[in-house]
Design a protein around this nucleic acid. Structure first.
Lengths: 192, 192
DNA sequence: TGCAAAACGGACCCGCAGTCCGTATCGTCT
DNA sequence: AGACGATACGGACTGCGGGTCCGTTTTGCA
């Protein structure tokens, strides 16, 4: 039993807001022009409710992000190869990066919004980035002959930055499979 | 002779604004909390003047950026090795990346501000990015055995993203030389 | 010196994130 | 069931920053 169950209306409103935000991000061109008031209206809820549930804009974005990321996290932490922990490092690195790339392709607008939000040096302070970085670094560490896995992990993840993906896939129209292939080539080039 | 000399007061105010913005970015913690009104006040100028001279916030940032970038551009386009055009490709690639990294280290706050500004998929629409990308890609192209130089150029540049640099050098306190060495190792790993 | 064009500057407007507080709902205790 | 404290609701309200407007001042040419 959870210590303090949240009230039923609160829980339902939370879901409504999440769904509304999802719908709006899907519908609108850029996440930039989805306002908090829009989300509240779409969810049929007051702004106060929205902010109480998520704190601020970034909180909402993060909540959505975490929800979408869940399956990937599971696949990585306890799934079968080539993503799961039983995979040999040399195969797992490209698999991880491919998974990240696909995730960002599937959630472009949301991820762009999240990576841009919160001035200063986000997205590098977000917990999911730290998780991913650590994981990738540790896997790289197990491949002999790779220098500076910490920076290498950062650099590889930087190649999947949301706005780069958006630029290539969205603005320049590079097809999904081509992008995946290029990223795969790139990482392959590194690991030899 | 320029076709239309701008009026003397206009020119002087433009310089004053540039200098003021420079000073403020140097003084304040983050570029995020330098407002246009601040810049105008520091320059001893009205907001109208500021906006007439630079169009908008991004315009001001770009102007500052171009001014700082000028020397680098010259060194790359017509300077001596290892940056200039006479350098053999295999040496020029790391030299270029090192130059970019140093530039971003020296202009952290400004570059972070510029890369974050203008929603959507900037910084990939900025002309200087396109210039840099093309250049790097063309140099890579001349190294045999490197696949997909277009994406590779993007990926390498992504490793010098301003917010990553800010995170490592600023937040985590990685020393300048260490960062340069890590980037050098990384690119060396790719080119073999 | 006179006068139009160009530039000035700060009051003003607008849109949005985030707050506040009077009202409505929940769930529990008797 | 009734009632009452705790919790949540919602939308009017605030603060702030980017960008505009327009009456006033400066410039530079004749």
């Amino acid at each position: 039993m959870p210590e303090h169950r949240s009230r039923k209306d609160a829980a339902r409103n939370r879901e409504a807001v999440l769904a509304a935000a999802d719908a709006l991000f899907a519908r609108r061109e850029s996440a930039e022009d989805v306002t908090m008031a829009d989300v509240a209206a779409e969810a049929g809820v007051g702004k106060g409710t929205l902010f109480r549930a998520f704190g601020d804009r970034v909180g909402l974005l993060r909540a959505l992000y975490e929800a979408r990321l869940g399956p990937v996290r599971d696949a990585v932490e306890s799934g079968p190869p080539p993503l799961g922990p039983a995979t040999p490092p040399r195969e797992r690195v490209p698999a991880l990066l491919d998974a990240v790339l696909c995730f960002k392709l599937d959630n472009r607008r949301l991820v762009v919004a999240l990576e841009e939000s919160g001035g200063g040096s986000s997205p590098y302070q977000a917990s999911h980035y730290e998780w991913l970085h650590r994981l990738l670094r540790d896997v790289l560490e197990e491949i002999p002959g790779a220098p500076g896995s910490d920076f290498t992990a950062h650099a590889l993840l930087a190649a999947t930055r949301a706005d780069l993906v958006e630029h290539l896939a969205g603005r320049e129209g590079v097809p999904r499979e081509a992008l995946r292939a290029q990223l795969a080539d790139f990482t392959a080039g590194l690991l030899d």
